[in-house]
Amino acid sequence: MDFFNDKHVEAAKDLIYKMADDQLIIGHRNSEWTGLGPILEEDIAFSSMAQDKLGQSEHLYNLLHELGEADADTVAFTRNENQFHCCHLLELPIGEYDFSLIRHFLFDMAEAVRFEMLVESSYENLALLAKKFKGEIKYHTMHANTWLQQLATGNEESKARMQNALNEAWPLALGIFEPGDSEDVLKEASIFEGEAVLEAKWLEEVTALLNKAGLTIPAGVTAEYGGRKGKHTAHLQPLLDEMTEVYSIDPTADW
C-alpha cells in the first residue's frame, strides 16, 4: 500500500467493512428463501444470489485482512452486533416476497452503481474486486427489475403490494447512503467519490425504473441512519446468533 498513509488505510477500512457486512447480511437473508421460494426458479435465484453475496463478502474481508484486520472467518463470525456496519435495510427479516423483491431491487441497484464507481478507485485491489463484482451484479439487477416491472404492472393486488413494500423500504434504502466519517479522505485519495455521489446516481436510475413500473416514490421521507455507526434494529442480533451457531460450537468445523 505504498501510496496509502495511515489515514487512507483507516478510511478504506471503513468503506470495505460496510460493503463486506452488507454483502454478508443480505447473503444470509437471501439464503432464507432456499427451500421456500414461491416457485422453483425463484428459490434458485435467491439461493444463487446468496452465494454470490457471500462469496463477495469473503473477498472483501480478505482485503481487510491484507490491511491488518483479522481473517475473514474471525471477522464474520466473532464480532458483536455493534461492530457491524451493515445498513438497516438488509437486516430486516425477509418478510413477504414483495418486500424481499423491493429490497433486492433498491439495494442491488445501489451496489451496481457502487461497483461501477469503484472500478476507477486508486486502491487497485479494491478496483479489481469491483470490476469482478460488476460482472456478477448485472444478473441480480436484471432479475430484480424483471420482477419489479412484471408485478407492478400485474393486477391490482400485485401493484398494491409492490407500492406498499416500496413505501416501507424507501427510508431504509436511503439509509444505505449514510455518510461515513471518512468521506473527505476517501475522495481526496481518489479511493471513492463518496456516498452522496452514489446516492444521486442511484436515485436517477431507480426513479426511471420505478416510474416505468408505475410506482410512486414516497415523498417527504427521512432516511433511516445508524447501521453504518453500529446502531442496529432488533433484527440483527437474532440473525447473527443463527449465522454463528456452528462456529460458536466449534470454530475449526469445516462445512
Binding site: A45, S48, M49, M142
Partner: peptide
C-alpha cells in the same frame, strides 16, 4: 430465458 440463475452460479435456464 427462463431464469438468469441455474444449478450453479455460472449457468442460466
Amino acid at each position: 430465458l427462463k431464469s438468469p440463475f441455474g444449478p450453479t452460479l455460472c449457468r442460466s435456464l
